[in-house]
Each structure stands twice: as C-alpha cells, then as structure tokens.
Design a binder for these strands. Structure first.
Lengths: 210, 210
DNA sequence: TAGATTGTTAATCGATTAACAATC
DNA sequence: TAGATTGTTAATCGATTAACAATC
C-alpha cells in the first residue's frame, strides 16, 4: 500500500506540521525544514528527517513545496478518506464532540449519537441522537467503523462491550478507565489526567527556579 | 520537596495505575505488580519498576498496599492540592470542560469561563461565564494560575497572549495550533488529530491482516 | 522447602542529536 | 565561490525488556 511504517513519535508530529503548513499565507510557496523547526520550536535535523520520511526529496537552496508537503502528510495520515463513526453518550462532552466540525478534516465522519435516555432528539448542529437500543441496527445498517465512548467511567466498559458486539472494531475512549477488549479490537484512550498532572508538575518545578 | 524526577513515559502511566487501583473493590487489600500488569496489559517488570520509583519498598509474597499506592501516586502527581484555573471560550467544548466534575480530583479547580460574547451568564452546573473584558481583573483578583484555551484555532494565539499578559504562566490549549509563548510560560496542547490518525491508521493496517 | 513476590544489573530497542558530505 | 539547503552515517540518550538474585 505504499507508505512505510513511521514511528509513533513522528506520528505525533505530523499533525503539528500539517496545521502549521496550512496556516502559512501565500500560494505555492516553498519552505525549508529549518524554517518549520524554528516556527514550531523543534530541532531542524529532526524536522528534516521527518519530512524526508513521508515526502519525496527536497531541493537544496529552495526547500520543499508547501502544497506538496500538505498533500503528502494528508495522504500519509489518510485524512482524505472518511470513516463512519458514532458516539455513545449525549452528555455535554459527547455533544461537543458530535458537533465539532474539524473532525471532518481528519477523515472522521460522525453520523449519530446514542444515549441511554436521550433528552433531545438532535444536537445543536442537527445530528440525530438516538436511544441506545437502536445501536445495533444502526451500526449494521450504516456500516459504522469507529465507536466513540463519552459516557461516565462506570458505564464505559459496558458500552464498550456493546459496541464490540455490534461489530465495531475500533474504539476511541474518553472515559478515564482502562477498557478490556477482545483481540483484534483497536482501542485508543484519551487521558486528560496526564495533561493536568504534567502541567501542574511543571509549574511546581518552575516555582523553585524563579 | 521529596520526589525525584520521573520519566515522561512513567508520568503517562501513573494516572492509569491510579484509576485502576481506585476501581478495585475491597478495603485495605494488597496487590502485586504482576496483578496490575495483567489487568492493564503491561509488562510486569515495568509495573514493578514504576511502582518502586514512586512508592516505598514492597514486600515479597504480599505485594504492596493498595491504599498506600493510591496515596503515593496522588501525592506524587500533586492531585491533593488545588490550582485555580479559568477557561476562555464558552462554546460547547469549553462548557463541557467547565462542568466536568472529575477535574477536581486532579487538583484542577476551574472557577469561571470567559467569552467574547457570552450567551448565558452561567453554565449548567452554575459556574459563571463572564465577558472577556473582565479577564484581567478577575485573574489578578482571584490569583488564577492556569488558563484553558477552548476557542477556535484562529483566535487561540490572541487569547493566549491575553492570558500571558494577565499574568498566567501555565496554559492548557485545546485549539489545534502551535502557540508561541514567552520563556517561562508553560504550555500543554491537546491534539485530537493525533488520536484520530493513529486509530484510523491502525485500522487500515489491521485490514490487511484479517 | 517451593513459590510468589520483590529488587537489581545488563542487554536491547527506539528515537534524537551531532557531525559530516553533497548539491544547487 | 559562498551559503543555504539537502541527505546520511555515527554517537548519544532514554526507556523497555530480559536475566538473575534475594526474601518471606
């Protein structure tokens, strides 16, 4: 399928590069790894190596084409195709995700939300919110590939099991629990606690320095 | 100040251990590194090393005290003290964060939200939403230490500058942009694009295997 | 004693950085 | 040519894993 394996570390940087490149003004311009590195606070050698891995050869003196880079990164990250997804949990957080329009640029097509007890029938942007009972039928009928979990921690494992039994093999989990899934099911958990902790620890460390 | 430096990798695992330990039933029980490793799908040697770094010595045959471990992790991550914080951006996402009650357990005390044009004066849970013009006074009066950015990407840098000039030295950014800040300001950015990309790439990789 | 647990020391792996050579 | 850029190869750093010894 082309595209050799890239490291996890690089995978984390690619979206950062992409955002930066897209935010640059002007058409058809060239940009050097050095300039990107400076803008994003990274090492220039690292940026150069990263870009070499996912794009063709650059040219001395001129750098790389901005447009080409954007195209290559998007192709690599597969942001151009779409994956049909649903959310379980229509609380404030679930609904915020449901209506977050930027996901479309990342290939994530969130088509509906499910809740144990839907208060409203649709979100602010007009996406449908169904009762959880309709999950199985919906998933099979619409060929859903990603399930997003936005329910309280105590319900997350049950929802996860439900999603798996509905034939969903990829789960994006926002509840603060470690979910157990059968082999072959892919899981990705967000953990805001890590961010809060690292931010606060760094603050505490800096206090001593000042 | 105790607590030697721990690695970034360990910092990411500590909240996972903490969640798991808290979810265990029963009082005053002991638990072995092996059991934790099995439950969380990690290597037992790694768990043992991790725990040794942040806690005292374990006992052969009996393992470690669950309660002691919880205490040590919370102490290490400093989840027991509180940091006064505010959010800028009262959109669906900002409000979801504002009302997310779990942050209190992580030492994050979000006291108010600010918006360019507040539609409501308070959130669902009753936290105040002010006009952005009141930001500076509020920050100084209430000694705010963390600013959370939940505005669209195009406004994020301006909001960030505003926060810094209000004396806030730690920023938690949810907008998909790289923010530039003066030396001494700590920044932590969430990037959902990384998660979406890695989930979808893994799916694509698995397709070939099946 | 045997076995479940601990901890430690050395080997491996992965990623970053540094030093260099090549090109327009 | 000089300098800005590229790429490559080797050195360093950090984290994980494996092998072993110690203890209750």
């Amino acid at each position: 399928m082309g595209s050799a394996k890239i490291s996890k570390a690089l995978l984390k940087r690619l979206p950062v590069y992409l955002n930066h490149l897209k935010s640059l003004p002007g058409e058809n311009r060239n940009i050097s790894a050095t300039a990107i590195a400076r803008a994003l606070g990274l090492g220039h050698v690292q940026v150069r190596k990263d870009l070499a891995k996912i794009s063709g050869e650059g040219r001395c003196r001129t750098g790389r084409s901005r447009d080409q880079l954007i195209q290559d990164i998007e192709k690599y990250l597969d942001f151009t195709s779409r994956t049909t997804s649903i959310i379980v949990g229509a609380g404030p957080f679930g609904q915020a995700l449901l209506d977050y329009s930027r996901f479309e640029n990342l290939g994530l097509n969130i088509v509906a939300c499910f809740d144990l007890d839907p208060i409203s029938k649709q979100s602010d942007s007009g996406k449908p919110i169904y009762s959880i009972g309709r999950l199985e039928f919906f998933c099979k009928y619409y060929d859903v590939h990603i399930g997003i979990i936005a329910v309280p921690a105590e319900d997350a494992q049950a929802v996860c099991n439900n999603l798996v039994s509905c034939g969903i093999h990829a789960i994006w989990n926002f509840a603060p629990v470690h979910l157990k899934v059968p082999d072959g099911v892919i899981i990705r958990s967000e953990n805001l606690a890590v961010s809060v902790a690292s931010l606060r620890l760094q603050m505490r460390a800096n206090e001593g320095t000042e």
